[in-house]
Design a protein around this nucleic acid. Sequence first.
DNA 1: ACCTGAACACCGTTCAAGT
DNA 2: ACCTGAACACCGTTCAAGT
Lengths: 203, 203
Amino acid sequence: MEQAPPRPYHHGDLRRALIETALTLLAEEQGWQFTLREVARRVGVSHAAPYKHFPDKGALLAALAVQGFEQLGRELRAAGEPPSRSVLAAFRAAASAYMQFGLRNPALYRLMFSAEAGDAASVHASERVLQTLGVLVDLLARGQQAGVFRRRPVQAQVAACWAQMHGLTLLAIEGLLLPQKVGAKPLEAALATLLEGLQAPPP
Amino acid sequence: MEQAPPRPYHHGDLRRALIETALTLLAEEQGWQFTLREVARRVGVSHAAPYKHFPDKGALLAALAVQGFEQLGRELRAAGEPPSRSVLAAFRAAASAYMQFGLRNPALYRLMFSAEAGDAASVHASERVLQTLGVLVDLLARGQQAGVFRRRPVQAQVAACWAQMHGLTLLAIEGLLLPQKVGAKPLEAALATLLEGLQAPPP
DNA sequence: ACCTGAACACCGTTCAAGT
DNA sequence: ACCTGAACACCGTTCAAGT
């Protein structure tokens, strides 16, 4: 007798199916308030099955957050690793990619930084983020050497940039940066203010 | 017969008691995941009683958020309304007060900007915030006239400042701005970067 | 090894009924 | 007017038992 292909019960990889369905629900429900039972239902599996792959709901959420950081890291590198552009252009591109990731995946972005979602999510956030922001660190260092950025401790500069992008992204997600209230192009304008703080004054 | 004093059932103002107990729980649980039933239990009332004062849990959370915005507004005004200081000093004080409010009330601060907590919370956030940030608008306008700030659209500047403070506050709350990772005094350093972007260069 | 079904201790919310 | 008690339809999580 031939061995049946090792497709365990349903589709061979429940873990991945759970993560993908959870990502869908995260986007649909605009948050991590979706239920584990609903995830199981959609995947077509009993509500107890997920517990064979994740110790609890928080662990599943943490897995989503990790995916988010990896994706964001990829997009930042794609935007910031310069194919012969100026440091400034690369920096702008990276900052823009960061904010657009947040706007395209609002619920995921919030989850990535949400201590409320069971802590697990943000436990490793710290390390993941600093990896993710490596592109910015490089650009700031190069920009300082090229004389386009003020000479300041890079760690402090990257913290300021990160905070600015994080704040803008979240405010934009919540719809609090509406053009009527805050000027025509809030994201661009805020980025310009940030750059004025980073750029070295002409000698 | 004397009328008994109109203390309805328990302490005369269940609504306020619910809000105050909920604020305590919000701080204790580090988030709005506390249960309405637990609030009722602590107040000493049946779990159905809150529904006579709030249509649902989201409405109670919204009331907490409103309280938060009012408190933040008061603290900003106290810090920023200048008893004869320089615009720059007043601005620093206001920014610092903003971030310290967030660090002192992390769960409340998150709730105030949390669309997940039933939307109701952030529905009015937008208007409340712009009121709250009025102090900054004034300071930026005065600073521009005094020549200490770059002449830029004030709405764009205030958006940039707000985003910076919001981002710093949230990152600090999540513990992602640890000095080891990001330099000695991340908040001060980021504020300095912000100010370099706002301040007019010497002529 | 991987999944199911029943069960436990909870929720948020509703509603008739009490004082 | 303000609150209670029982009830409904859910959760997250556990665990013996199935294949």
